[in-house]
Design a protein around this nucleic acid. Structure first.
Length: 1093
RNA sequence: AGUCUCGUAGCUCAGCUGGUUAGAGCACUACACUGAUAAUGUAGGGGUCGGCGGUUCGAGUCCGCCCGAGACUACCA
C-alpha cells in the first residue's frame, strides 16, 4: 500500500525524516556504502561557534550540502569533516567585553592564563545552536569528529606549515607602517582591511598648516592634512619635482598678519579669490572661503624648493637627526590640498618610505624600555611629551569628547598664526572590522610571509580553479592576487596559535620549531645548557609557550617571539591540520588534497579562499581546491543588509520550524543564482511550498489514492515503451530530457537552473498536463495494460523527481521516495540519499513527440480562449475546429496528438485547411536574420513592401515560390525560403492566433450537441453531490431525476454514459419526490435525488 | 578617488552569438473549471528594458558618457 495523507505538512515531514535518518544511520551509510576509491573531496570552512547562526549560514550551508549530496548520488564517497574556528579577535573581544576589561588589563588585573581559559570556555558558547541548525536544515556534516583549531594537534600542524615557509625563506621580520587598531590592540592584515564595511565615509577636520620658511620674513609653505593629530610628528614636507609652485602675497585670515604663502600653481584657485593690490588686513574674514590676495610674487618648480629648511610647526619633541626640510616625493599630486604633503614618518607608509630615502628622522620618544616610540601610544593616546594634548585619544577610542583633538590642534594653530584654513572633509577611511573604530597607520614590528614572491605562481594556479561565478575568480580574486602584498602574520594578542620562533636578544640567532618532538628536543638541550627544569607544556598556548627559553648553537638564550599567528592562517591550514598532517594520517591527507569543492560567502574571497590558496601554493605548489562557489549576501526583502540594529534579521530556527527546511532551501536556491544577493522574503517561501511542494504532494496523493484502489504495485516488469500511449511516451521523453539537464546543472554547480527546471516539469508537464489529461485512465474499469502503463509512468516520474530534487530538498525527497518504495515489489536503496541520480536514456527522448505535444498544448490553449470569448463551457461539446496547415510536417504532427486535443477542448473533429485555398488570410514577413546581411540598407523597404501585399500577391508567391520587388530602381529577388508566411485569419470563422499558429472554431450547436452537453452537465452535478455527501470514490449510487423536458433528450441518449461516469446503477426519470435537492441549470431548476444503492 | 558587476512589469526573476508584438511566476481584476482542490484554466490591466548619445537596414542585447545600486581596490597627504 502507498501511504495516504490528510494534508501536506512540511515541518512534520522534517521531523519524521530526521528521526528516520538518525535511527537508520543514513548519513553514515551514505558515506560507507560508497567506494573509497571514488572520493569527492569537500572542505568545510570552519564557523566560529562564538556567535548565533543566522539565515545567511543556512544559505551557505545549503549550497555546500547540495553538491555533497549530489556527488554522493553520483556514486562518489563524500566525507565531510566538520570544524570549528576557535581563535582570534572576535572571541577575544567578546571576552573582554564580558569581563569588562581592555587589552591593557590582560596580564595585570587578569592573568593570561585565566584570560585564555575564559576564551576557551567562551568559544563554544553557541555550539548547541549551531548543531541544532545544522541538523534542522538537513546539512550533513560530520559533527562527531570535527577538527578544532585550538587543539595541540591542530597547532602542531600549523607549526609544521610555518616551519616549511621558514625553511623556504618566506618568513621575515620587518618594521613597517601598518594598519593598526588601537581599539582592538592589534595590527591588521591587508585582507582584514578588505573586509566588507572596513572602509567607511567619515568626516574629518582637514587643515592647511603654515610652515614658516627659515631665513625669510613671513614666508610659509602650505601643506594640507586630513589628520591634524599627525602634525606634531611632522619632520618634512614633500613636493613634486615637476609641479609648479607659486608664492602669494596676502594676509592670514585669522590673525590678519601679512604673509607670503607657497603652494602648487594648480591649486591656487582653490584657495584664492580675486586679486586686490590694495588689500587691507581688516578686509580678511575668517571662514573657509577663498581669500583675496595682493599679488603673486614668484613661481618655482618643486625641484627648486627642494632643500628649503623650515621651522618646526609644533615643537613638543625635538627630533634627532635631519628634519624640517622640503624633499621630493613622486606620490605628490595636485588633485587635492596644496600640492605639498606633510610628512610624519611614524604615521604613514609613504611618509615612512620617503623619509627613509631622504635620511629624514622620525619624531619619537623613548618608551619604558628606552626604545623609540611614536608620539601616540598603542592605545591611540598622545604621550605625555605632547603636553597640550597628553593622554588624549587621537580618534574616538575612549569616551566621546566634546571637541576632538583635531579640532583643538587647529584652534591652537589658528591662534599661533600657523593655520591657513581648516574645513570639514568627508572621505572614506579604513575601520577595524571588529571594533568598528578607525584604524591608525602605525609603525610596528611584525612577521611577514613573502607571499609577493609567489605571486605569479598563485595567479597561474588560480586560473585552473573553476570559480562560480567566474567573475569572482578572474576579477575579484585574480586582481587581488596580481596586486598581492606580503602577508602580515603577526598578531599581538593572547588567544591564538603562538608563533613557533625563538630569537636571541640581539636578534642574530633564531630557531623555528616544526613539531612537538623538536620542541621537546630543544627544551632538553636548553635544560642541559642552562640548567633549567623546563618541559613541553600540556597546552601550547600563551603564556606557557612564552616561558620556554631555548638555546642557540652558540649557547645564546633564545626567547619566543611574542606574536600570535593570524587566525586566517588557522583556517587556511585546515586541509592539513584537520588530519594532523604530517604527523598522522599521511594517506588520508593525500587522498583528500586538494578539495574538489568548497563553498563560502563572497566575503571570504580575501579570507578563507585566499589563505587556502596561498598556503596550498606556497607549501605544496598546488591549488587547495578545484571548484569553488562563492555565494552572495542575504539581504532583507527590501535589499537592506540584515543587522541587529535594524531588527530586520530573519531567525533561521523559526523560519525552518514554520515552513520546513526544504521550502526554505528550495526558495533560496531557486529564487536567484546563489552568487547574486538574495532578497529574502518569507512570502517567497510560502509561494514555493504552495506551488511546488503542494503540487508535487497533490500529484503523489492522486497517485496513491488510485494505486491503492487498484492494488497497483510497481515492479520492473513494465509495459514496454512502444505499447504505451503517446502521452506516456511524451512525459517519459520530457522526464529523460529533464534528467539530462538537471544532472548537467548540478555537475556544473548551477543549482538554480536545476531547481527551476524541476519545478517547471512538475508543474507544467506532470501535474497540469500529464495527470490532468490522464485522470480518466486511473478512474475507471479493471486493471488493463493501458491503466498499468499509466500507473507505471506516473510512478516513474515521481520516483525520478524524488531523486532529482533530493540534493536541494532532502527531507521531502526522501519522504516521497520512501512512500513510493512502500508500493514497490522490488526494493531499491532504503533512502533516496543512498540511491543514485537517474541516468538519462536518450532512447526515450523523442524530440518530434515533444514538439507534437507542444502543439497540442498551444492549440488547446487557443481553443479554450475562443470558448472563453464566446462563453461556451468546456462541458458543451462542439462539432469541429479548423487548423490551417503551416507545412507538410505540421499536419502529421498535429494528427498524432489529435485525440488529446479533441478530448481536452471537447470538440468532435479537426479539419485541416491547406494553404492553397483562399479561405485563409495570410501575412508575409521577411526572415530578418538571413536577409539582413543580403539586403542591408534595403531591408526596411522590403519589409514594408511585403507588409503591403494583398492576399492575391501572397498566393502568387506561394505558387511561384519567389518574390520580386523594385526598391528605388533596384530589383530584388527573394525566394520563398527567405520569407515567412503565416496564417492570421479565416474570414467568417472564430479565429485565434498565436505565434504563427491559428485555430478556427465552429460554434454551431445542434440538438445532438446540446443533449450531450446536458448529459455532461448532469454528470458534473451528480459528482458534486457525491462529493458533498461524502460518498466513497467507489460507492455505487441510484439517481432519481425530475422529468423535465430539457433533460429528457440527454437522459434518453446518454443514460449509460451518465451512469458509468457517476457509478450509478440506476437512473430514473420520475415525478418530483421527497428529499433530494434542487439543481440550478442554465435552462432552469430541476429536482434530483442521489442515494447509495 | 579608481576598478568591476549590475539596473527589464508593483515584487522576484528569464531573455542564447544584435533580427521586428520584450516573457514567466507572484500580486491585482473578471470569468470559468472542480472525484488531485491550501490547486487549476482563460482573459485583462501593468514596460519610453535607468537616462542621453553612437555603431547598424535593425539595439533590452554592442560601444561611449551620465545617473543610481552593490562589491572590490587604495598610503592616498
Amino acid at each position: 500500500m502507498f501511504k495516504e495523507f490528510k494534508g501536506l505538512n512540511l515541518p512534520q515531514i522534517d521531523k519524521e525524516i530526521l528521526e528516520y535518518w538518525d535511527n537508520a544511520q543514513i548519513f553514515q551509510k551514505s558515506i560507507d556504502q560508497r567506494d573509497s576509491n571514488q572520493p569527492f573531496v569537500f572542505y568545510e570552512g570552519p564557523p566560529s561557534a562564538n556567535g548565533m547562526p543566522g539565515i545567511h549560514h543556512v544559505m551557505a550551508r545549503a549550497i555546500k550540502d547540495i553538491f555533497c549530496r549530489f556527488q554522493t548520488m553520483k556514486g562518489k564517497r563524500v566525507e565531510r569533516k566538520g570544524g570549528w574556528d576557535t581563535h582570534g579577535l572576535p572571541i577575544e573581544l567578546s571576552v573582554e567585553k564580558e569581563l569588562g576589561i581592555t587589552k591593557e588589563d590582560i596580564g595585570k588585573s587578569i592573568s593570561v592564563e585565566e584570560y585564555n581559559d575564559k576564551c576557551r570556555e567562551t568559544v563554544m558558547r553557541y555550539k548547541d545552536k549551531w548543531d541544532a541548525i545544522t541538523k534542522q536544515m538537513g546539512y550533513w556534516v560530520d559533527l562527531e569528529n570535527p577538527y578544532v583549531t585550538y587543539t595541540n594537534e591542530y597547532i602542531e600542524s600549523v607549526w609544521w606549515l610555518i616551519s616549511q615557509l621558514y625553511q623556504k625563506g618566506l618568513l621575515y621580520k620587518g618594521y613597517t607602517i601598518q594598519p593598526y587598531s588601537p581599539a582592538a590592540g592589534t595590527g591588521l592584515s591587508s585582507h582584514e582591511l578588505n573586509m566588507p564595511n572596513a572602509y567607511q565615509e567619515i568626516t574629518d577636520i582637514s587643515a592647511v598648516a603654515q610652515f614658516k620658511v627659515k631665513g625669510e620674513v613671513n614666508t610659509f609653505i602650505l601643506a594640507w592634512t586630513t589628520t591634524p593629530w599627525t602634525l606634531p610628528s611632522n619632520t618634512a614636507l614633500a613636493v613634486g619635482k615637476d609641479i609648479r609652485y607659486v608664492k602669494v602675497h596676502t594676509f592670514n585670515r585669522y590673525t590678519k598678519e601679512e604673509c607670503f604663502v607657497i603652494l602648487a600653481k594648480d591649486r591656487f584657485s582653490s584657495y584664492f579669490s580675486e586679486q586686490q593690490p590694495d588689500l587691507q588686513p581688516d578686509q580678511m574674514k575668517a571662514g573657509n572661503q577663498p581669500i583675496p590676495y595682493i599679488e603673486i610674487v614668484g613661481e618655482y618648480s618643486g625641484r627648486e624648493l627642494e632643500g628649503i629648511h623650515y621651522e618646526q610647526l609644533l615643537s613638543y619633541v625635538i627630533p634627532e637627526g635631519k628634519a624640517f626640510e622640503v624633499i621630493l616625493g613622486d606620490f605628490v599630486t595636485t588633485s587635492d590640498g596644496t600640492g605639498i604633503v606633510h610628512i610624519s614618518p611614524t604615521f604613514g607608509a609613504d611618509d615612512f618610505k620617503v623619509a627613509k630615502l631622504n635620511g629624514i628622522a622620525a619624531l619619537t620618544v623613548p618608551d619604558v624600555n628606552g626604545n623609540p616610540m611614536p608620539l601616540v601610544d598603542k592605545q591611540g593616546k598622545f604621550v605625555s611629551q605632547v603636553t597640550d594634548f597628553a593622554g588624549r585619544y587621537v580618534k574616538d577610542y575612549g569616551q566621546k569628547e566634546e571637541r576632538s583633538v583635531d579640532t583643538d590642534i587647529t584652534i591652537k594653530l589658528k591662534t599661533e598664526n600657523k593655520l591657513f584654513v581648516s574645513e570639514k572633509y568627508v572621505h572614506s577611511y579604513p575601520h577595524c572590522w571588529r571594533t568598528d573604530k578607525p584604524i591608525l597607520y602605525y609603525p610596528l614590528d611584525s612577521w611577514f610571509i613573502k607571499t609577493s614572491s609567489l605571486k605569479e605562481r598563485m595567479v597561474q594556479l588560480n586560473q585552473t580553479i573553476n570559480w562560480k561565478p567566474a567573475s569572482t575568480g578572474e576579477g575579484r580574486f585574480g586582481k587581488w592576487l596580481e596586486n598581492l602584498q606580503d602577508w602580515n602574520l603577526s598578531r599581538s594578542r593572547y588567544w591564538g596559535i603562538p608563533l613557533p620562533i625563538w630569537r636571541s636578544a640581539d636578534a642574530k640567532e633564531e630557531i623555528c620549531i616544526q613539531s612537538i618532538a623538536q620542541l621537546k628536543m630543544e627544551i632538553d638541550r636548553a635544560n642541559d645548557v642552562l640548567g633549567l627544569q623546563q618541559s613541553v607544556p600540556a597546552d601550547l598556548h600563551r603564556p606557557y609557550m612564552d616561558e620556554i627559553i631555548l638555546v642557540s648553537a652558540n649557547g645564546e638564550k633564545l626567547f619566543r617571539e611574542l606574536d600570535l599567528i593570524d587566525v586566517w592562517f588557522d583556517s587556511g591550514a585546515m586541509p592539513y591540520a584537520q588530519w594532523h598532517y604530517p604527523f598522522e594520517n599521511k594517506e588520508k591527507f593525500e587522498q583528500n588534497f586538494p578539495a574538489d569543492f568548497i563553498a563560502e560567502g563572497v566575503d571570504q574571497t580575501r579570507g578563507w579562499f585566499y589563505t587556502l590558496h596561498a598556503i596550498g601554493v606556497m607549501v605544496f605548489d598546488s591549488v587547495a581546491f578545484k571548484n569553488v562557489v562563492s555565494n552572495g549576501l542575504v539581504l532583507d526583502k527590501n535589499g537592506q543588509k540584515m543587522s541587529k540594529r535594524l531588527g530586520n534579521g530573519i531567525d533561521p530556527f523559526s523560519t525552518i520550524e514554520k515552513y520546513g527546511a526544504d521550502a526554505t532551501r528550495w526558495y533560496m536556491i531557486s529564487n536567484a543564482q546563489p552568487w547574486d544577493n538574495l532578497k529574502f522574503d518569507l512570502s517567497g517561501i510560502e509561494e514555493v511550498s504552495r506551488k511546488f511542494f503542494g503540487t508535487l504532494y497533490n500529484t503523489y496523493s492522486f497517485f496513491a489514492l488510485y494505486a491503492n484502489i487498484d492494488q497497483f504495485k510497481w515492479s520492473s516488469a513494465e509495459v514496454p515503451l512502444e505499447k504505451r500511449p503517446e502521452i506516456d511516451r511524451w512525459v517519459l521523453s520530457e522526464l529523460n530530457t529533464l534528467i539530462h539537464l538537471v544532472d548537467t546543472d548540478y555537475a556544473t554547480y548551477e543549482p538554480t537552473n536545476a531547481t527551476r527546471k524541476i519545478m517547471e516539469f512538475v508543474d507544467e508537464n506532470l501535474s497540469n498536463w500529464y495527470v490532468r489529461l490522464c485522470r480518466r485512465r486511473f478512474w475507471k474499469g479493471e486493471m488493463s495494460e493501458d491503466k498499468l502503463a499509466a500507473y507505471q509512468t506516473l510512478y516513474t516520474c515521481l520516483n525520478v523527481v524524488s531523486r532529482l530534487m533530493a540534493p536541494v530538498a532532502p527531507f521531502f525527497a526522501d519522504w516521497l521516495y520512501r512512500n513510493l518504495q512502500e508500493g514497490a515489489l522490488e526494493k531499491g536503496p532504503e533512502s533516496v540519499h543512498l540511491a543514485l541520480i537517474p541516468v538519462s536514456d536518450s532512447g526515450i527522448i523523442d524530440h518530434a513527440l515533444e514538439e507534437r505535444m507542444a502543439y497540442a498544448q498551444r492549440i488547446s490553449s487557443l481553443v479554450l480562449s475562443l470558448r472563453k470569448k464566446e462563453k461556451l463551457k468546456v462541458r458543451q461539446p462542439l462539432q469541429k475546429m479548423l487548423i490551417p496547415i503551416l507545412n507538410d510536417n505540421f499536419e502529421k504532427q498535429v494528427e498524432g496528438v489529435k485525440d488529446l486535443i479533441l478530448a481536452e477542448v471537447n470538440v468532435k473533429e479537426i479539419e485541416y485547411v491547406s494553404g492553397a485555398g483562399n479561405i485563409i488570410q495570410k501575412k508575409v514577413k521577411p526572415d530578418f536574420k538571413s536577409l539582413g546581411k543580403k539586403l542591408g540598407k534595403n531591408m526596411k523597404a522590403v519589409a514594408d513592401a511585403l507588409a503591403s501585399l494583398s492576399q492575391e500577391d501572397i498566393q502568387q508567391i506561394e505558387k511561384s515560390g519567389s518574390f520580386e520587388t523594385n526598391i528605388s530602381g533596384e530589383i530584388i529577388q527573394l525566394t520563398k525560403e527567405e520569407l515567412e508566411i503565416v496564417p492570421v485569419d479565416i474570414p467568417g470563422w472564430l479565429v485565434a492566433t498565436d505565434a504563427g499558429l491559428t485555430v478556427a472554431l465552429d460554434i454551431q450547436l445542434s440538438d445532438e450537441l446540446i443533449a450531450e452537453g446536458m448529459a455532461r452537465e448532469l454528470v458534473n452535478r451528480i459528482q458534486n453531490i457525491r462529493k458533498s455527501s461524502d460518498f466513497n470514490v467507489t460507492d455505487k449510487i441510484a439517481i432519481q431525476l425530475e422529468a423535465l423536458d430539457f433533460v429528457k433528450p440527454a437522459v434518453k441518449k446518454y443514460a449509460s454514459y451518465i451512469c458509468s461516469e457517476t457509478l450509478a446503477e440506476k437512473l430514473d426519470v420520475v415525478e418530483k419526490g421527497d428529499g433530494g435537492e434542487m439543481l440550478d441549470l442554465p435552462e432552469g431548476e430541476i429536482w434530483i435525488k442521489v442515494t447509495l444503492s
